[in-house]
């Protein structure tokens, strides 16, 4: 089976609410996580989606 979509990375500032799965990047604040997500987006050719204020996922479509 070919995966159409996949979560490539998770960027978060709240490390108490995450575990497992995709690579996780923990940041100190919103600014840092935005910068990191922007970089990851460019590098992985994915899209940075924001699920809440402190959580980004990078998804390959």
């Amino acid at each position: 089976m070919k995966l159409e979509k996949a979560i490539l990375a998770v960027v978060t500032t709240d490390k108490t609410r995450i575990s497992g799965g995709a690579p996780i990047f923990i940041c100190d604040n919103r600014n840092e996580s935005e910068a990191l997500a922007a970089n990851l987006e460019a590098i992985t050719d994915g899209i940075a989606h924001s699920l809440s204020d402190d959580l980004f996922i990078i998804v390959k479509h």
Binding site: E34, E41, I47, A48, H49
Partner: peptide
């Protein structure tokens, strides 16, 4: 983070810059 045209949801764009 949701992009809308009128009331139609298009997609989720996370980054302010984008």
């Amino acid at each position: 983070a949701g992009l809308y045209v009128d009331t139609i949801y298009i997609m989720n764009i996370g980054l302010k810059e984008r």
